[in-house]
Design a protein around this nucleic acid. Structure first.
Lengths: 336, 336
DNA sequence: GTTTTTTTCGGAAAGGTTTCCGGAAACCCC
DNA sequence: GGGGTTTCCGGAAACCTTTCCGAAAAAAAC
């Protein structure tokens, strides 16, 4: 038997298992002398407690889960970066689950997590989820939980979001100020809070400038080809817009591609703004005006809240809905 | 007691715990009749076996770990995407650990993983690791392991890599063919196999064209400002290169930034090629010639190999070192 | 010097699952 | 209808840790 566990240590030291365990957890119920003996041998043999036994006994796993639609995406990878930083700091482990924007997968993943594998989870729902029972179920099962970015306002779970409506308002106003009179909004075809928030900001800005009638919302989706087709139709139609406001990074990229293809000059013929955390946005042709979301901060913030719940600390009212502001970075694609 | 476990099921069905367990695991040692009874109640009560108890008993965790330098990076996030796909398919869970290019953190993470928390791990080492004992230790501890992309050739662990030297040779040759006579190579300041591979491909291409003397290797690092400074020096020096070959996506971005700043025209005054998995590379100003690495495939491949090891299947000799080819995508930044 | 408290430790239970072993019933074969 | 298989199931051990409880010894209190 070469596995090194408490029993092994106890035998070699002529102690009881319980004493060894206590010694290693710095209990005051053990003399400093034996504590040192135990620690010395433990170190020498490279003892590491079996995590499954600990988890089973203590009913906690020192693990949290992150459930997100995709990872090959700046926003979510920056979020994950923030999450991992805080978790590592706390000595926690991070499980990652990708839903690939599939509601059913999301549901089964959450189902799977309701068995004690994790001490808590954070989720940004897929764009195909219309129903939030699976979140509700987790909440009722008593699993600490935080939702971020793509949230449902109805459900009683702490939320970490950004000010989608406000920043969309700002971006749209910026376009109007720069002379745009026909601004198309490329919206995500879903019922997500962020989408509606962004769209309402866009609409409010139009209204404020007496342009309510000029609303032009185009639904885009996950299929690049189809998006390109929609945008092409838009740009080749008789009432070509003079600006495109993309609600998602992908749509902004799609727009750029179509513009290059159709030789539409940005920003002379068409101004473009997109939600995007692309670090290379400044290097695009032309440099793209972007709304950058505080992804890293949102990841850190969400995780901090999650740990507060896990540690059963009372949440301030203000912590149940945290809004981290986005940033509008003006570049050439929206310049006059 | 409202927790639903085997004991609870057994009591309600008037069966022994062992029978219930067997019924749920499709043992032939239980009649189909009672099996159905058990399953029915289990489903009704939403029974989910406690993963820690299972793991403890079976000595396996159904979990693998991915240890990578960073996640906010197209290459690694695409890899992770591939990993997650295969793992989810196998019913496995994925733990993620970021080293942030810190050797010590990497070491302590691997140390932490040597306690049975995971059934296997895959790693791409940080650029500050010079010593691979921590990998060796894991290997000796019997933890199934695969290394990918950033590997050490010496260590006896299956490797999944791409043909860095060959593709660097191809890229450099492409630049030479397009008239470049003074090609700077922006290298990562580390001792990684991939760096040396890329550099050797660059050197071999120069040699083949009788340009061995024109070698121009510039060491860059993690600090963007410092990299920019290096590149600025390069472009403002008396012997300005007519091409830059960036060994890392970040350096290519740095190059673009400096070129924009100094108004150096790409590709007329300077041709640029970079290793990069940036999907928007085609939209840069100008569109960037990139070497795209098969990140997603490498993730899938690595994970498949890892599962073969976990399942104790014999590895073919060819599976101990898998090379997935990279792609050179020619765009305007390197055109004549 | 006796009683009470504190210190230090051992024994054993508990957490939930899997699996080994043995036993009882049912079946089969001649 | 006795011997031998199957079939099906229960009991209990095992995985390793944490923690409750009690006990012995040492220290403190009176």
């Amino acid at each position: 038997m070469d596995t090194v566990n408490l029993k092994r240590l106890a035998k070699e030291l002529n102690l009881a298992i319980s004493t060894v365990s206590r010694a290693l957890s710095d209990s005051h119920e053990v003399s400093s002398e034996t504590r040192d003996r135990v620690r010395a041998l433990a170190k020498k043999l490279g003892f590491q407690p079996n995590p499954h036994a600990s988890s089973l006994r203590q009913n906690k796993s020192k693990t949290i889960a992150v459930v997100i639609p995709e990872i090959d995406n700046h926003f979510f990878s920056q979020v994950l970066n923030g999450v991992e930083t805080v978790a590592q700091d706390k000595g926690y482990h991070v499980l990652i689950y990708l839903t690939h924007e599939d509601y059913n997968k999301e549901k089964s993943i959450l189902q799977l997590l309701r068995n004690g594998r994790v001490d808590g989870l954070m989720i940004s729902v897929s764009n195909t989820t219309r129903n939030f029972e699976h979140l509700e179920n987790c909440r009722e099962a008593g699993i600490p939980m935080v939702s971020f970015d793509r949230i449902d306002e109805q459900i009683d779970v702490p939320k970490v979001i950004t000010d989608d409506a406000a920043i969309a308002f700002k971006a749209t106003s910026h376009l109007i100020k720069n002379g745009c009179r026909r601004i198309a909004f490329l919206s995500m075809s879903d019922s997500l809070s962020i989408s509606s928030g962004r769209q309402s900001g866009y609409v409010r800005a139009l209204e404020k400038h007496g342009m309510a009638k000029q609303q032009l919302v185009v639904e885009c989706g996950a299929d690049d080809k189809q998006n390109a087709q929609e945008i092409r139709k838009l740009l080749q139609g008789k009432q070509r817009p003079d600006a495109i406001f993309a609600a998602v990074e992908r749509f902004a990229i799609n727009t750029y591609e179509v513009c290059h293809e159709l030789r539409v000059a940005i920003p002379q013929e068409l101004k473009v703004i997109g939600f995007s955390n692309l670090p290379a946005a400044a290097l695009l042709d032309p440099p793209m005006t972007t709304i950058v979301q505080p992804a890293y901060e949102m990841g850190k913030e969400s995780t901090s809240i999650l740990f507060k719940i896990i540690e059963k600390k009372a949440l301030l009212h203000s912590e149940k809905r945290i809004v981290v502001p986005s940033l509008l970075i003006e570049r050439r694609s929206s310049a006059v």
